[in-house]
């Protein structure tokens, strides 16, 4: 479990995160959404211990991630938006670097690589950015970590690879694993992420499970236009509307519509979920 309390972080005089509190539980795949520059990557790097909180605290399983205890590092994996190329064959990189993770499984690494159709004998510094990313994703999952922090993992992946990524995440992470995925590509990950965290400038706009969201907001895919809609988007088959759920009826959450509704009606959405 990760407990974030009153976390603040700024770059020089520019505050990015201000007094943020969150609780992240194992067994979930969190989707971290937000506009450019609201601090998604900053939050991920703080959670994994690459940055030190300037105010407040982060406690991961009773430990401070910035201490970079090897025991904690062995239970987590941070995958950057643009992972570094390595001057080694993928299989050699896997066996040599993987030896540092206590639960690393080389057979699993090769299996996921094969699912992604990446040649394990190819030098990683000659791979395309998509292939490199797939290699790093395969490696991350083969580490059998408990906490994953993935920054824009589907960026640069082709369409079949995005689908393969979803399958790999569902198949190769443990039941008690916590995955935090920062993304702009909500459609790529719509089927796997739950709960959803939406960051706003310096703040958390929403942190709720899909069930909670569906209880509070109604996603209407019909053609009748509602005047109290927080968000309305016309589609070829009608419209997508988001409005407060007063009837208690369940609906399928559309993440893009949710994000746009939350973004355009910040106070309403925040109040709705803080009730």
């Amino acid at each position: 479990m990760i407990e974030v309390s009153n976390l603040s972080f700024s770059y020089g005089l520019k505050p990015v995160l201000k007094n943020i509190s969150l609780r992240l539980e194992g067994g979930n795949i969190y989707g971290l959404l937000g506009e450019n520059g609201v601090g998604k990557t900053t939050l991920l790097t703080l959670l994994c211990g690459l940055k030190k909180p300037q105010k407040g605290s982060i406690v991961t399983d009773g430990r401070n991630p910035f201490d970079r205890d090897p025991a904690l590092l062995g239970e987590q994996f941070y995958l950057a938006d643009e992972p570094a190329p390595v001057h080694a064959k993928a299989c050699v990189f896997g066996s040599s670097t993987g030896s540092l993770w206590p639960k690393y499984d080389q057979a699993k690494f090769l299996e996921i690589l094969s699912e992604f159709e990446v040649d394990p004998d190819q030098m990683m510094d000659t791979m395309s950015s998509g292939q490199l990313k797939k290699t790093w994703i395969s490696f991350a999952l083969a580490c059998n970590a408990r906490h994953y922090f993935l920054d824009e993992p589907t960026n640069g992946l082709d369409i079949p690879s995005k689908s393969q990524f979803r399958k790999a995440i569902m198949k190769h992470t443990g039941e008690d694993s916590m995955v935090v995925i920062s993304t702009h590509q909500v459609r790529d990950l719509e089927e796997i992420i739950d709960p959803i965290i939406i960051l706003d400038k310096e703040d958390v706009l929403l942190n709720a499970s899909l069930e909670q969201i569906s209880r509070k907001l109604f996603f209407d895919y019909g053609t009748q236009i509602h005047s109290d809609a927080l968000y309305l988007e016309h589609t070829p088959s009608g419209a997508i509307q988001v409005y407060p759920n007063t009837s208690g009826e369940e609906s399928k959450v559309n993440l893009e519509a949710l994000f746009n509704a939350a973004h355009s009606h910040k106070t309403t959405v925040k109040a709705l979920f803080h009730e």
């Binding site: 970079r68 590092l73 062995g74 941070y78 540092l100 993770w101």
Partner: peptide
């Protein structure tokens, strides 16, 4: 000091002393 390579290094499971 490189963001990508440095991040990888810092996240590898070994203590700072090691």
């Amino acid at each position: 000091t490189d963001k990508r390579k440095g991040s990888s290094f810092l996240m590898l499971p070994a203590s700072t002393f090691e």
